[in-house]
Each structure stands twice: as C-alpha cells, then as structure tokens.
C-alpha cells in the first residue's frame, strides 16, 4: 500500500531583486522587481508503506520544499499530494498525529526544559494519556539510551545527545511515516552510526516508512532501499539501491555517481 503519493507537485517562490548600493535600494523602493523561482516543478513519485527512501539532491534542488509540502508546512501551487491518504493542505492536524519529523537544522525541543519534560509536553500535544506517555518515555529512553541525561536541560546536552532526544520526541506518538531532513548533520561518526542503526531498527520493528533527505552518502548507502534524485526542482532519477550498487561494483563510487547526476542539471538521467 502507498504511504505517500505525489503527482505533478509544484511550488514557486517570488524573490525580491535589488541592485547593489544605495541607488539600487532607492530604485527598488520606486520600482520593486521580483523574480519567480520554481523550487519544485511537477514532481511525481510514490512511496510504499515500510519503505526507506532517500530523497536527495544538491543545495537548492527542492528537497526541503518538497518535504515541507508533504508535512503541511508549505502550500503547493499545483499538483496533488497525499500522505497516508490524507491531503496535508486540507487536513494538516489529522496528518500530524500520524507523521513524525526530524529536521537536523531546526530543533523542536524546548532548550530550557529537560528531555523528560519535553517528552511529557509532546505527549500532551499528541493527546496521549499520562500513563501511556510515561511508558513510552521509558521505552524510548531505553532504545535511545537517554537514561544518563534525561533530566538535564536540553541546552546542556551535546549535539549527539540532543539529536537522540529529537528522535525520541518525534517518535513519542508512534508515527507511521517519519520525515528526516538531514538528521545526521554535524554528528560524529559514532553517533551517526547509532542514529542509523536506530532508524533501521525502527523500520524493521514498527514498519515505519522513512523519507530521508541527506547529503551524507553513508546515510543513503546504509539505510535506503530506493533513491530519488531531484535537481532544479525536477526528479532526475528514481531507482533502487540494489541497481545502483550493481553499477557501484563496476568501478564508480556511489558518491561520484551522485556528483555526476547532480552535474547533469535538469535532465533525466538513466543509470
């Protein structure tokens, strides 16, 4: 069964343009100019339930914009999208109960609170009864090994500890789909490995669908079954990791292959 269905999804941003210097500023007040940037251009794909998908592309390719439309943060300009059969633009709150998000560059936790208090707060946000929240905190605390710092304010934690807490918070309500936007950014190799094995474990045990964007080839290689590459707002490749690994053995590393595909901007690449 499909967990995500996207058809001809598009998003355009209007960006103000200004000439350099004071004269440019004055001119832009009198004659404002703006440019339209097509961040996502008629993108279509589906993701099956329980699949781990890498959705990658160079900076500015439209990855984050797509993920933000799928999670209900941004409104698309065109196309159709459904996550777990729900349209995020129409039933955002209903969808939010069933998905989890981890944005590596944006914290969701309150930094002055302890992870424990944060989890309790998230439990209330997802309408989970107190007893159930406690049991879930215990379960996640063991899974992510949070015991040593669960009562330390988040602002006093290391980046690795914080990311483990971010993951735990995003899983408090047992989401069916987990959106991960650069979840291992800035982490050391040991913590990266821990996070990856936890994602894998979660996918195996709970059949959680994982939608991952990352610039880290290690994340993609070790976690994903399928890879979609997006460039200049369009899908340029959609293939299985198995097929890519076959090519990989023929001499080219996965990283080099991805770089080659990135360079072929805007064109559909077949491998």
């Amino acid at each position: 069964m499909e967990a995500i269905r996207v058809q001809d999804l598009s998003k355009t941003f209007r960006v103000r343009q200004k000439e350099k210097g004071l004269k440019g500023s004055i001119r832009s007040v009198l004659h404002p100019r703006s440019e339209e940037i097509r961040a996502v251009d008629e993108v279509s794909f589906t993701v099956e339930e329980g699949e781990i998908l890498a959705f990658i592309g160079p900076n500015g390719a439209g990855k984050s914009t797509t993920i933000k439309m799928l999670t209900g943060i941004l409104y698309p300009d065109g196309g159709k999208l459904e996550v777990l059969g729900i349209d995020p633009t129409k039933r955002r709150k209903e969808l939010a109960y069933q998905i989890g998000t981890v944005f590596g560059q944006k914290e969701q936790l309150w930094t002055h609170l302890t992870p424990y208090d944060n989890f309790r707060f998230f439990g209330a946000i997802y309408d989970i009864p107190e007893k159930e929240t406690e049991a879930r905190i215990k379960e996640l605390g063991e899974l992510f090994e949070l015991g040593a710092f669960i009562n330390t304010p988040v602002r006093g934690l290391s980046l690795g500890q914080r990311m483990r807490c971010e993951f735990a918070a995003s899983l408090i309500h047992k989401p069916k789909v987990l959106f991960l936007d650069e979840p291992t950014i800035g982490l050391d190799p040991v913590v990266k490995e821990t996070i990856r094995s936890l994602i894998k474990q979660m996918n195996r045990q709970l059949h959680t669908t994982i939608f991952l964007t990352s610039h880290d080839v290690g994340d993609i290689e070790k976690l994903c079954e399928r890879i979609i590459i997006i460039n200049a707002g369009s899908v340029v490749m959609d293939d299985s990791m198995e097929h890519l690994k076959d090519i990989h053995t023929s001499g080219m590393s996965l990283e080099n292959m991805i770089v080659e595909i990135y360079k072929a901007e805007g064109r559909t690449v077949s491998v």
């Binding site: 933000k68 999670t71 209900g72 943060i73 955002r92 709150k93 209903e94 939010a96 109960y97 998905i99 998000t101 944005f103 944006k106 914290e107 969701q108 946000i125 997802y126 309408d127």
Partner: peptide, 10 residues
Amino acid sequence: LDAYLVLPKS
C-alpha cells in the same frame, strides 16, 4: 513557524 506547523494543534 515550521515547528508549530508539524504539530497536531492550532
């Protein structure tokens, strides 16, 4: 506003 938009509340 992202952090608020992914939560199932107003």
